[in-house]
């Protein structure tokens, strides 16, 4: 048998294959060290337009060339540092980022749920189901005479009684005293109030005073009723109990509440649907010692 010549050994294709393969293996193994991988950061035309547009909206003029360069540089810096931070996992357990992400998705969901135009029937139905949210307020019209504690001191209660008796007696006479001149002045407030809601009255005289009015008889002087200012003798001239309200009178309010309810219900439904897409495993620690 002839021995293969050296030359023919060199020409062996399998050897070529193995050598090239080994070389590729070595190059591949060291490639990342010799030539570090480069990611692309592309600031495209759309992004540049957006940067310029944001600037224009803030400053009411387009950016100059150097300002635009600065905006682009800033954009690149933002991208580089953000990617590096993400690579290091700095976003992962960050409460702020998680909350922001959660907030964004909740806003989108809620807005989507609330963007439907309701019909009258839907609103009427909502009103029927939640009458407590739309109950009309009781309203009272009244006259008050003020007794100032810091003027009357210990005589306050006695004075109130005397004055009340006098007012009641006067009402039985054909010509009664001019009640406007009785009592003490109370700056910036009136003596006579037209039909006013309980909340409005509470704002001026306090909540206790406002609710006390509901127990008074219409058309006669009563009291004294206490407020944050002192004592008042009060004559209720008219009152209206809180009654049901018609949709037509409060449609915008009902619509707002309905939308809010849609928003909440929609967001909850959305969450439940998303949650159903996960297999959830909770491993509780063994009951902790107290």
């Amino acid at each position: 048998m002839n021995q293969p010549s050296v030359e023919s050994w060199w020409r062996e294709p399998l050897l070529h294959f193995l050598l090239l393969g080994s070389l590729l293996f070595v190059v591949n193994a060291f490639w990342d060290q010799w030539f570090p991988a480069q990611e692309n950061i592309v600031v495209n035309e759309g992004r540049v337009r957006m940067l310029a547009e944001n600037f224009r909206r803030t400053w009411q003029r387009p950016p100059t060339a150097s300002e635009l360069d600065g905006l682009i540089e800033e954009q690149i810096r933002d991208e580089v540092l953000t990617r590096e931070a993400q690579r290091l996992g700095l976003d992962r357990d960050d409460t702020v980022i998680r909350r922001r992400l959660r907030q964004k998705i909740e806003i989108i969901t809620e807005e989507a749920a609330a963007s439907v135009q309701p019909t009258d029937a839907q609103l009427q139905n909502y009103l029927n189901l939640h009458p407590e949210n739309f109950r009309g307020e009781s309203r009272t019209a009244f006259t008050q005479i003020f007794l100032d504690p810091s003027k009357r001191g210990d005589r306050l209660d006695a004075d109130a009684k005397v004055l009340l008796d006098r007012l009641r007696a006067d009402e039985r006479r054909p010509t009664s005293t001019n009640w406007q001149k009785l009592g003490d002045q109370l700056f910036m407030l009136k003596q006579e109030y037209p039909l006013s809601g309980e909340r409005e009255i509470a704002t001026i005289f306090g909540a206790d005073f406002a609710s006390s009015l509901l127990d008074l008889k219409t058309g006669e002087w009563s009291g004294p009723v206490r407020s944050g200012y002192g004592l008042h003798l009060v004559r209720v001239s008219a009152s209206e109990a809180a009654g049901p309200v018609a949709l037509a009178d409060i449609r915008p309010v009902v619509e707002r509440e309905w939308r809010n309810a849609q928003r909440k219900a929609g967001a909850e439904a959305q969450y439940q649907q998303l949650r159903a897409g996960y297999k959830i495993v909770v491993k509780r620690p063994a009951t902790a010692t107290p």
Partner: peptide, 8 residues
């Protein structure tokens, strides 16, 4: 005379 003072 209070009634003439403004409403609060």
């Amino acid at each position: 005379s209070l009634s003439t003072l403004l409403a609060g």
